[in-house]
Every structure is written in structure tokens, then in C-alpha cells.
Amino acid sequence: MDGLLLFIAGLIASSAVAMVVGISFALILPGIERKVQARIQQRVGPPILTPGWWSVLKFMYKSKVEPIAQMPAFYKSLVLIGIVIVSFLLLFVTPYWWSILGWGSILGIAGLLKLEEVLYVLMGSQSQSIMSSSMPVPDLAKGSKFIGIRREFNEQHSAERSLKMMAIGSIPLYLGLVVPFIAAGSGMLNAVVSLQNPDYIVSNWMAIPIPSKPLLFTIPGAMGAIVYFLGFVMLMNEKPFSILKAKIDVIEGGVLEYASSLRAAYYLMRNLLMFSLSSIFNTLFLGIPFDPFMPSMMLINMLLSLIPVVSMATLAAFSPILTFRQIYPAAMGISAFGVLAMILASSL
């Protein structure tokens, strides 16, 4: 019984530290992302803390703007559900959670990511801002070729695109996610970490266990990492895969109506997702987990989390938004590459 209580206390303490550190660090990432893009574009760019920390704090204290969604309460709750999902995603890759009901596994991670994707569909189908169909413009002229056609909100169109992205766009992420588990021959995170960093499992909290066989430096691991990274960009809805929130047509997509404190919540959700996915990358492909009770590993994990973020910012700076004409073949090609990585990983 004492052991169980100790475990629960450890779990709570570990989760609290992970969340505080995770959120604090996650809110720095968009500033780095924007700064990298700005420097590529020969601009100065915003101060590092502005797009993350100060934006969130600023929006929290803005006067409330109620969304005109179909079910406003449901629409408002979606972003909060998103924060919960992403928080659990971060927690599931911390070692204390690995032993609970198999959540620290491929199923736990993939399941939460799928839920996160569904949120965008729900947000899009709920939101109905004034920017599109409800704009009071007298253009339903008698001379129009098509009269009585159903007019759709931009956000609803974005929801349809989310469905398409769910169906095909996110496949690379899951294929990339599977590669390390195939290499480890197990669905559990601790097996993946033990494979790459056997010292970590037996080290005390002050140690700095360096991974001896990081998967990233093997052929299937490198291939899987590339596929995972592209899937990460797709899930983050960043360019070139940002068709869900293409500014030129659907503007921000389903999140368009999140204003004031809800906008702050959305930023928190997005930034925490970015950090969680980067942290998962380090855990799966380098064997360096985000361990709140091992400061060295936590710090290394956070520093290495900058690599996917900076890479994503660079890719976004040099890419246009792709339409489904390009996304379908690109996703199929990347997926094929992922399948090859899986086959090769099975021989490791």
C-alpha cells in the first residue's frame, strides 16, 4: 500500500513538474519558429517571447468575444479538450506514466493524436464566422447562373479538408511513429528507450546517460525520422501542408472564431502539441525521454526539441501551401518511404 501511495505521489509530482516545465518551454517555441522564418526572409522578426508567452498572456486579458458557432458552448469546450489531450500526450512520454495501463505505448500516443485530429473537424463544423457566408452582401442577384445553391462557411470547408488530411495526410506520422516500436519489437515506450539507451533504465537521477545506439543513426531510423518529421509538419498544419488554414481562402479554418481567452487557449494547445511531438521524436529516435525526475535528460530532451521546430520553420519559410493536387501524391510517396522504413526496421 505504501508503495502504491508513493507511486501515486511520484506520478502527481512528476506530472506537475512535466506540465510546468513543458508549458513554460512550449511557449518559447513559436518565438523561435517565427524568428527563424524572419531571419530567412531578411527581417528582424518578433522578440522570442512575444508570439508565445506575451500573446497568450495578452489574449487572456482581452475582453471576451463570443463565437457565433452552431453550439457555442461545445465549440468553446473543444479547445479546452484539446489542451487536455495534448497535456496527456506530453505526460504519456514521461517515464512515470509508462507503467500505467499501457498508456506509454504506441496505442496511447497514436490514440491521442487521432483525437487531436478529430478536434479540427469538429471545430470547423461548428464555427461560422461572419467572414464568409454570413457577410451581408447583396450579391444573390437574379442574373446569377446558380440560385439556391447551399452556401458553406469557410470553416466548414476547412473541416472537410481536415477529414481529407485525417484520411491521408496524417498517415506518414503514424508510420514514422511505428518504426522505433518495430525496431524494439515491442509496443511499449520503455522498450524503445532501453534499446537505444540501456544506461538510462539503470541510472540514478543525477546521471547523464548518453544513448549508445540511437535509432536516428541507423538507416531505417533515419528514414522513419524523416517520415515522422513530415507527419509532424502535417499535424501541426504548417506549410507546405497548411491547407486546413490556408490564409487565402479558409483563413484560419475551424479556429477562426477563437478570440480573447479562447485564442490564448488555442495558442497554448498548439504550442504544447508542438513541444509534445518534438519530445516524442527525441524519445523515439534518440532514446532521450522527457524525464521530470532526471534533470539532465529533461534538459537534453528540451534542447533537442528545438531541432524539429527549427527544421519546421525552415521548411515553412521555403515552401508554398500545397493543395490536394500535390498533397495526395506527396503523402503517398512519404507513406511508401515509411513502409520501407518499417520493413527495414524489422530486420534490426
Binding site: M131, S132, V137, F146, I149, R150, R151, E152, N154
Partner: peptide, 23 residues
């Protein structure tokens, strides 16, 4: 025609006010 999508006249991507209706 399945639906109509309309953009503008107030839209962040449009540098000037105009309205596009796509069927």
C-alpha cells in the same frame, strides 16, 4: 453544384475589397 463558397469583400487575403463566389 454541390455548394457555393464565397470569399470577401472583407478577407485577410484580399488586398482590396472584392467578392468571389465559387460554385
Amino acid at each position: 453544384i454541390e455548394k457555393e463558397l464565397s470569399f470577401g469583400p472583407v478577407h485577410p487575403a484580399l488586398v482590396e475589397p472584392y467578392r468571389m463566389r465559387f460554385f
